[in-house]
Amino acid sequence: MAETMRQTVASILKSIERYNPANLQTLERYVELQSRENTYDLEANLAVLKLYQFNPERFNPDITCQILLKALTNFPHTDFTLCKCLLLESVVENETISQIKYLADILEQCDFAQFWNRVHQMPELCNRISSFHDSIRKFVCHVVGITFQTIDKNNLANLLGGIDDVTLKHWVKKYGWKDEGNLIFIANQDENIKTKNITEKIEFDHLAPLMAIL
């Protein structure tokens, strides 16, 4: 189902048809499919926003919200920024959309504690996107993975949204991290992050002609 849909949409997007508002219905159904089945297609979603931009009378706030929430699940990619650039200026006043924009803002700043706090206050919104929470946890793990060599266990559990021990074990195992009692060993960062010295090298060939002048 998702696969055939994906192909239909891909063929629409290839040509000038992507600007045809008659295709909006198909594309909107595709967005809902993505929310349900936890698939993701940035290009199709941007095409929807584009069609809203060209045909403001067709604007659908509900679909727009789903697209924005889906973009959150694809952090650390900057999909959300791309979507934001295409939003109609007049749409900015929509209450739900402002809430989602706020979510994105604190997520971009890596204020995870506050993010989870907010998400728990709006369950009906976030639950529409299947595996929403786990997608965000993946992003948290990405940031933890590039920042830490070892991290306090409680701290990690909090960053991941206050998960219990069993779930934490699952994530630790998934990323190949090591449980060392109170600390979790992430990776040996010494190899990736080290001081570099760049010095100038002059090739002999560059100097040879000068020697002749002098």
């Binding site: 590039i146 920042t147 830490f148 060599q149 070892t150 991290i151 306090d152 600390l183 960062q189 010494d190 990736n192 992050i193 080290k194 001081t195 570099k196 010295n197 760049i198 010095t199 100038e200 002059i202 560059h206 100097l207 000068l210 002048i213 002098l214």
Partner: peptide, 26 residues
Amino acid sequence: FIDNDMIHIADTKVAHRYGDFFIRKL
């Protein structure tokens, strides 16, 4: 990177480039 409570810092140091400048001036 952060090792528990300690931040380890890596910087890139770039030496000044003189060669190109002098070649052009010459």
